[in-house]
Amino acid sequence: MAVAIEVNDLYFYYERGKYVLKGINLTVRDGEMVAIMGNNGAGKTTLIKHFNGLLKPIRGSVKVKGRDTKGLSVAELARTVGLVFQNPDHQLFAETVEEELAFALRNFGYPEDIVKRRVEWALTLMDLRKYRHRSPLSLSGGERKRVAIASVLCYDPEIIIFDEPTIGQDYYQKQKIAQLLRMLSRQGKTVIVVTHDVEFVAENFERVIVMADGKIVADGNVREVLTDPEVISKSNLLPPQVTHCAWLLKDVGISPKLIKVSELVKEITRLFHEHKGI
């Protein structure tokens, strides 16, 4: 499959000499769903700001759909790469939800009939029809989050990046976000999610990239990465609770590479049956 994002030996600093990204190499293919994990300050947000040109490499290169971001403006890249920020309050400003959704479309110069159609589509998708004439600022936290997501999805970018979508969200809202991510992925979108919610990643992703101190310390299958004690300790993360249990029970014969509840239940049941069989 074609490459959506290619990062080559990327270095970046905000303040001369204090590197925040130190030689990042990664490739995300079209239609992939990838989680980027790491502690606060590992460089995750700085990295994704390179994907839509908000930041430009100091060394190395970032290519989006084969085009180097160096010569492209944010507005040009934004049509291809949608970036949903962590806090909806950093962007909501319009008088109505509808207007909020139309904002990006108008910036991109779409004709009004298309704007209307895309807004309708996004309102339906994010279950916001009943709020269309309300002020986004009058909505609850979870609803505001949905408006912010819709305001990016409405112009149908090929690559969609979410920065910490689960922070401050309750269980139901998290489930909803997981559903949305899967749906976007099914539609063939490339989905990149920055998060430190390890349970969320274990449940919903196949590929995970782990960052620590401006470098990538692991990139691969969720099971391999999240059950690797070295990766976990190097990146200051915590393993998924199931994995932690499996590690604690390694000596009685439980595989340490479990990440799902069903797997652990199966392993423990197997163990009990074997005991019975002694």
Binding site: D170, Q241, V261, V265, T269
Partner: peptide, 20 residues
């Protein structure tokens, strides 16, 4: 209520269903 029930509690419940 749909609160985030810890995974260990889920495991406990499923084991119980399995007779353990």
């Amino acid at each position: 209520l749909g609160i985030g029930i810890p995974k260990v509690v889920e495991v406990y419940k499923r084991l119980k269903e399995e007779g353990i």
